[in-house]
């Protein structure tokens, strides 16, 4: 009971936090010197990206825990799956909000910047991971294989980032300079950004916990269904006797 109360509180706090971020971001904070109204994206875009990486980190750690024999536990597998799923949603949101930022700032929806390219590849990588998780089969087998896939995907991320940034730096001068204009975050802007980070992190915890609970219920339903079917067959046998 207390657990579900904590969950509800987290959810309410997350929603209130996000609503407050929206209100502060859209109405209270001032325009930035170089960016105008665009700066308002700042309050949600970096927090979304942060949540995506946090989610993948969590999925990686729980997969690692699952693979290690002594801590192998279906709960870790569920956590990895729930976290990765939330991560994919937030990666998608990060890419979308990033594109919206990119169009007016650099004139393009997309640029082959290392961070962008890595994020896009990350999106595809973890879509593959989720596809693997959804494959029907012995839950333990799927869990173990998913854990290994999560491991490989996570190790790939720094290599991708490094290789893409090297690729870009060796090419002709980048057409779009991400670090060109400086943005000073101060006063109400800093507070709004901080609030954004906190409330999106809470939203992450809330969504992941719910997704986890759902997975646990689905597992239990499968078990109960099996038991029920066994009982029915047994009852049929007794009638015949």
């Amino acid at each position: 009971m207390t657990r579900s109360r904590i969950l509800t509180t987290t959810g309410v706090l997350a929603l209130v936090g996000i609503a407050a971020t929206v209100w502060l971001g859209l109405w209270v904070t001032p325009n930035a010197v170089n960016f105008g109204d665009l700066v308002r994206l700042l309050y949600i875009h970096p927090p979304m990206a942060w949540v995506a990486f946090l989610a993948y980190g969590m999925a990686f750690l729980s997969s690692l825990g699952y693979l290690w024999r002594r801590t192998r536990d279906p709960r870790l597998d569920r956590l990895a799956g729930a976290s990765a799923e939330v991560g994919v949603v937030f990666t998608g949101l990060t890419l979308i909000t990033g594109s919206i930022w990119g169009r007016p700032t650099w004139g393009v929806w997309w640029t082959w910047d290392p961070l962008l390219t890595t994020t896009a590849l990350l999106f595809v990588l973890y879509l593959g991971y989720l596809a693997l998780r959804r494959v029907p089969g012995d839950p333990e087998v799927v869990a173990r294989r998913s854990a290994i896939a999560a491991l490989i995907a996570f190790v790939d991320v720094p290599i991708v980032y490094f290789s893409v940034s090297w690729w870009r730096s060796l090419h002709q001068a980048p057409t779009v300079d991400l670090s060109g204009r400086h943005l000073y975050v101060h006063g109400s802007m800093a507070w709004t950004l901080l609030l954004g980070f906190v409330s999106f992190t809470l939203a992450y915890a809330w969504l992941t916990a719910h997704r986890y609970r759902l997975a646990a219920l689905a597992d239990r339903e499968a078990d109960e269904g099996l038991r029920q079917a066994l009982d029915e067959r047994r009852a049929e046998g007794e009638v015949l006797v």
């Binding site: 590849l121 879509l127 593959g128 596809a131 995907a153 790939d156 290599i159 991708v160 290789s163 690729w167």
Partner: peptide, 16 residues
């Protein structure tokens, strides 16, 4: 499933 899992991970190899 295999191409979906394999190709994104192989991206650095393609690049390098």
């Amino acid at each position: 499933l295999l191409p979906l899992l394999f190709l994104p991970v192989a991206a650095p190899v393609l690049l390098g």
